[in-house]
Write a protein that binds this DNA or RNA. Structure first.
Length: 262
DNA sequence: TTCCATGTTCCGCA
DNA sequence: TTGCGGAACATGGA
């Protein structure tokens, strides 16, 4: 599930629970989740460090420490965070567990091991090392800049939206939502979009993500008129009542309405 | 048993 | 060079 709005929700969750607390111990039951660090290195670098601030870039959550370095969290398809007090029950699928100095615990859980936990000294350097494009909600990502990103691209519009090195933060679900609300078929080639459609795509992208982040990360929190509630075979289009289609575009199941999207 | 899943990455090919 | 399809990764549910 975790796309930009979900990761934004994780960041808020950390702010409400364990932010500003200090790590006393890092336990890594399954080292396969680590990327670029060993469990010994991670434990040593986090020991006695305070969790100072949250940052998000696309689907990455960067938890800044009081020495300026960052704990890097990526959630894959099944990554989650859980924080609890002393005698709370442990969640399932814990891949990394942090004990904090005042009795709280923070767990990174991941059922399918497709996420990763890492460590990065410098945030900007990390973003460029991952070849990530601008965050989809970056205030500096203006309409003009977005239009420039689309220039010269020949693939599908859905492929563009999901390409993290072009724009960071969108996955399968939210790209379908944005394309639905913009009235553009997932398989439409970028170079066949009119100037008006390109501008509309930008506006809808920002509106959908802003709304989703404000409402919370649960699908049920999103407006009833959204496609997100109807990602299943033979569902009705929330706009025209027609039958939605499910096609494979750039290798992912894509839901769309043949009457509302062109 | 087989297929599918909201994540990324790599390879071969057009 | 860009982008696509397919496979791979690991696991569980329909």
């Amino acid at each position: 599930m975790p796309e930009l709005p979900d990761v934004a929700g994780f960041a808020r969750y950390l702010e409400k629970t364990v932010l500003h607390q200090t790590v006393s111990r890092t336990h890594v039951p399954d080292e396969r989740i680590l990327s670029g660090v060993t469990r010994r290195q991670l434990a040593a670098r986090l020991k006695h460090r305070q969790l100072a601030a949250t940052h998000r870039h696309g689907k990455y959550l960067l938890l800044e420490l009081d020495d300026g370095a960052h704990l890097v969290l990526h959630f894959g398809m099944t990554g989650r965070l859980a924080a609890w007090r002393r005698d709370g029950a442990d969640p399932d699928d814990i891949k990394v567990l942090w004990d904090l100095e005042d009795g709280w615990h923070l767990a990174y859980t991941c059922q399918r091991l497709l996420g990763e936990v890492g460590y990065a000294r410098d945030r900007a350097r990390f973003v460029s090392s991952q070849s990530l494009g601008p965050d989809a909600l970056d205030p500096d990502l203006t309409e003009d800049r977005f239009l420039a990103l689309m220039e010269g691209r020949r693939g599908t519009t859905k492929g563009l939206l999901m390409n993290q090195s072009v724009i960071a933060g969108l996955g399968n679900v939210y790209s379908d939502e944005i394309l639905f609300q913009a009235g553009i078929r997932p398989g439409r080639k970028v170079d066949r979009l009119s100037a008006q459609e390109r501008r509309e795509l930008y506006r809808v992208l920002r509106r959908v993500l802003t709304t989703a982040c404000e409402r919370g990360d649960a699908v049920a929190d999103q407006p009833d008129s959204w496609l997100i509630h109807r990602r299943d075979e033979d569902q009705e289009c929330p706009r025209c009542g027609g039958t939605l289609r499910a096609d494979t575009v750039i290798g992912r199941t894509s839901y769309w309405c043949p009457s509302c999207q062109d």
